[in-house]
Design a protein around this nucleic acid. Structure first.
Length: 234
DNA sequence: GCGACAG
DNA sequence: ATCTTGTCGC
């Protein structure tokens, strides 16, 4: 099988101040597509980032899962220096640089990427998942453990229950229960996928645990890498 | 000014 | 996210 490495269709500057970052989000958010626009999905990618002791180092991991078996077929871990502080609403400017770096090196191109964070459930409708989706022009889902934006009702307590995340009259995501009696996840459109399809994929990726296998596998990798880095620096 | 605030 | 021990519960 031949592979073609992923390449961004948009290459913008990352060394921005807060005001410039907000302006860029407003511009790029116009490119987000909230409808299903993707081919058959054979590979799904998971992304996660961990921080070292003094938060001066980032470790990002990409895992590629076979969409049917949910088995890992490829993975990569990269390190990068922190170039942006953590600011709610500007999260992508902190975590995306190492993620982009890692995605460029992946040999197996995924047809869908699941992100640990929000998609359009964001004050400017441009969370990490949407940002990643737009610059690579690839379908993405935002899947956060906690809420950033929007109001919602508590979904009923069985797996699959979902209540809409609303910003006034606008639907920006869903609070989705992935297991019975477990706190819901916050699922939102990243890019080129509908909320309904996104929720169905997240449920498919959560056969046993609260978090999607994509996120769990990526989380496991960055944690292992970080512990090895810390041991080597002592 | 006060509370909220993805990871 | 990370710092951190025990502890309640299935």
């Amino acid at each position: 099988m031949r592979h073609r490495k992923m390449e961004p269709i948009i290459n913008h500057e990352w060394d921005l101040n807060e005001k410039e970052a907000v302006k860029l989000q407003q511009e790029l958010s116009l490119k987000v597509t909230k409808e299903d626009r993707f081919p058959e999905i054979q590979y799904v990618a998971g992304v996660d980032v961990a921080y070292s002791e003094q938060s001066d180092l980032l470790v990002a991991a990409i895992v590629i899962l076979d969409a049917s078996s949910l088995q890992v077929v490829e993975s990569i871990v990269v390190e990068d220096a922190v170039h942006f502080p953590y600011i709610p609403g500007l999260f992508s400017f902190r975590e995306l640089p190492p993620i982009v770096k890692a995605l460029k090196q992946i040999k197996t191109s995924p047809q869908l990427v699941v992100c640990d964070g929000q998609g359009i459930a964001h004050p400017r409708r441009f969370g990490l998942a949407s940002h990643l989706g737009v610059i690579f022009d690839i379908p993405t889902i935002g899947c956060g453990k906690t809420r950033l934006w929007g109001e919602f009702e508590e979904p009923s307590r069985e797996r699959g229950a979902c209540s809409l995340l609303m910003d006034h009259e606008e639907v920006i995501g869903g609070a989705l229960r992935t297991q019975d009696n477990i706190k819901p996840l916050f699922v939102s459109v990243g890019h080129r996928i509908s909320l309904e399809t996104a929720c169905n994929w997240i449920l498919k990726l959560c056969p046993q645990y609260r978090l999607p296998e994509t996120t769990r596998q990526a989380d496991q990798l960055v944690r292992k890498a970080l512990s090895q880095i810390n041991q080597g620096s002592i």
